[in-house]
Simulated scan of single mutants.
Amino acid sequence: MTSACLEVMPLPADAAAAAVPELATLLHACVHAGASVSFVLPYTLEDAASFWRGKVLPGVRSGALTLWAARVDGRIAGSVQLDTDTPPNQPHRAEVRKLLVHPDWRRQGIARRLMREVEAMAVRLNRSLLTLDTRTGDAAEPLYAALGYQTVGVIPGFARDPVDPAKVDGTTIMYKQL
């Protein structure tokens, strides 16, 4: 990592709401750089802000979702979510969602640091199994494997490519026992 100051912290509801413009910028940049995180082009900053306000903030407010932000020199450079809203027969499990690192800050250890925070929180919450999915062949897939996540399988043709909607990509389902 460069000499920049990296801080990773959970964002409680009020802080998350205040950070929506920065989080929207992060998501917008990731989608425009080709990240397969549920969205396709064209994708506006308002689309990104609506996602944070409508899909993430309610879970953060209810306590079912924990959101982290990685800040580099005070600016949000990455984020990740831990979804603990599981059914009664799965209180031991949680899902990692939307690991995002701004294209300008990739390959500097931010994703690893965010994942370490997610895993530490899962342990504190007595969650012994984490699950996630990632686009098959994506740069994140070897990162997750290096962090100890095991591949369950691949679902072909799972989602439209964010840049070329005529193309469909597979998704790789992974898990880690903590």
Rank of each mutant, 00 (worst) to 15 (best):
V60C: 08
A19F: 01
K167R: 11
F39I: 01
E119Q: 13
S62H: 12
A120Y: 14
M9H: 12
A16K: 10
D47K: 00
L125A: 11
W105G: 00
Q177L: 14
P142K: 07
T25D: 09
M174K: 10
A122F: 05
L147C: 05
P21M: 03
E22S: 07
F51Y: 12
Q81D: 00
L143K: 13
R106M: 05
E46L: 14
G74I: 05
V40C: 14
L125Q: 12
L23M: 05
Y149G: 05
G74P: 13
C5L: 12
T172Q: 15
I155W: 09
C5D: 14
P162H: 13
L23H: 06
A70I: 09
A70F: 10
C5E: 13
T136G: 03
A13M: 13
Q150A: 08
T86H: 04
P87Q: 13
L57Y: 06
A35C: 06
W52H: 07
A77Y: 02
P10G: 08
D83M: 03
K98M: 12
D169E: 12
L65M: 12
M9T: 15
R106W: 02
S36H: 02
V56Y: 04
G54C: 09
M121R: 13
K98H: 07
G78K: 00
A16E: 12
G63S: 01
A77Q: 05
A159C: 11
D47A: 00
R135K: 11
R135L: 11
E117K: 00
R135N: 08
H32R: 13
G153N: 07
A48H: 02
Q81F: 02
L41K: 12
D83Y: 11
D133Y: 07
V101I: 10
A64M: 06
H28G: 04
A145Q: 15
T44N: 02
N89I: 06
L6W: 15
A94R: 02
R112E: 08
E119V: 02
L26S: 06
A166E: 12
M9L: 15
T136D: 07
G54V: 01
R97E: 14
S128R: 15
A94L: 09
A122Y: 01
R160F: 10
D138V: 04
Y149S: 03
L125E: 14
M9D: 14
T134C: 15
L57C: 07
V80K: 00
M121G: 02
D169P: 11
T134H: 03
L114E: 04
L147S: 03
V154F: 14
S79K: 00
H28E: 11
P165M: 09
T134I: 12
N126K: 09
G170E: 10
K167P: 01
K98L: 11
G170S: 12
E7V: 15
L23W: 01
A33L: 08
P87N: 06
G137L: 09
A145H: 15
Q150P: 04
R71E: 12
Q177K: 02
S128F: 08
G78E: 06
L130Y: 06
A48E: 05
D161Y: 08
V56M: 10
P58W: 13
A94F: 09
D73M: 07
I155C: 11
E141M: 14
L11S: 13
